[in-house]
Simulated scan of single mutants.
Amino acid sequence: MKKALLLSSSGYKNTGYLTHCREWICDFLQKHGVFGEEILFIPYAGVRRSNDEYEAKVKECLKYENIRSIHHFTDPQTAVKNAKIIAVGGGNTFVLMYYLYKFKLIDLIKQKTESGTPYFGWSAGANIAGNTMMTTNDMPIIYPESFKALEILPHQINPHFISGKIANHNGESREERLEEFLIINQNSTIYALPEGVGLEILGDEARVIGNEAVLKMRYKKQTKFINPNEIFKV
């Protein structure tokens, strides 16, 4: 049974890095009986910080010492196979997927999550938990082998969702960009997650956590809002 916590962002307003979701993560790990176990952290998305810096920041901000980044292992595939908990940080989704495919980790992580290993991720780490990474907000600064992602949630995820147009901005809004995706991919469903929101997944059910509603988008503006604590089938 899949167990996942997918967080839109590492921060919420001015609360600081991972502060708003620290309790959610701890509760998630306790609920599944793995709190205190080693977290295998995947830092590949963090382009502007080294792997060591990223690992240290997550340890400090989560106040959880038993975190080990995958870059310390000589064999990343074995690290995933033996992981008790998998966490994937945010950054650039294209870079993250490039390295997951380079080290042949996508299928291994999928197998682990399908067999019940708890997974949590934020921003890019949440985006890749969907069907594909094609609703990322990031620039394609490197090209991964495929856009096919982990399918923990068998739909698309858009983190950092902002509704409406920014004043004096003449480009497309986020809704318009997501509508473009749905025009081309008419059988898809997108879950657009505002910052400060997460999806907690257990098997084929999920619920929204946080203070904002999640926007569920389908082709031809078939949209609905899913409110906090509402449980729905995925």
Rank of each mutant, 00 (worst) to 15 (best):
R218P: 01
E172Q: 12
C21S: 15
L6R: 11
K3T: 14
E37L: 00
A192W: 07
Y12V: 06
R177G: 07
T74P: 00
V197Q: 01
P228D: 06
Y143C: 02
E195R: 13
F103M: 01
Y17L: 06
K102E: 03
E205Y: 13
R68F: 01
S69E: 02
L5A: 09
N51M: 07
L62N: 14
I128W: 01
S146C: 07
H20V: 05
V47W: 04
I85H: 06
H169W: 11
I39P: 02
F120D: 01
I86G: 03
C26Q: 13
A45D: 08
S188C: 14
Y54P: 01
S69D: 13
V214K: 09
L6G: 11
E176S: 14
V214Y: 06
N211E: 14
V88L: 00
E37I: 04
Y54L: 06
I109T: 10
E200Y: 13
E200A: 06
K110H: 07
Q111Y: 06
C26D: 12
K63D: 15
K2E: 00
Y191S: 05
I109C: 05
N211Q: 13
L199W: 05
E205I: 14
A129K: 10
G210Y: 04
Q111A: 15
N211A: 10
C61G: 03
E195L: 04
F41D: 04
P43M: 08
L182Y: 10
L153P: 09
D27P: 02
I231G: 04
R177S: 11
M134S: 13
A79G: 11
M97Q: 09
E65P: 03
F35L: 05
H72S: 00
V95A: 09
I42L: 10
G203W: 08
S50E: 07
T113M: 03
N187T: 15
A206D: 08
Y143N: 09
I142K: 12
M217E: 08
E65Y: 11
L105S: 10
K233W: 01
C21R: 04
A206Y: 07
A87F: 02
C61M: 10
P140D: 00
G116M: 00
F35D: 02
G171V: 09
T189H: 11
I142L: 02
Y143H: 10
H155E: 11
Y44H: 13
K224V: 07
L7R: 12
L105P: 08
E176A: 14
P76Q: 00
V197D: 00
D52C: 03
K3P: 05
T19Q: 11
I128S: 03
L105F: 11
E53Y: 06
I231C: 07
H71C: 00
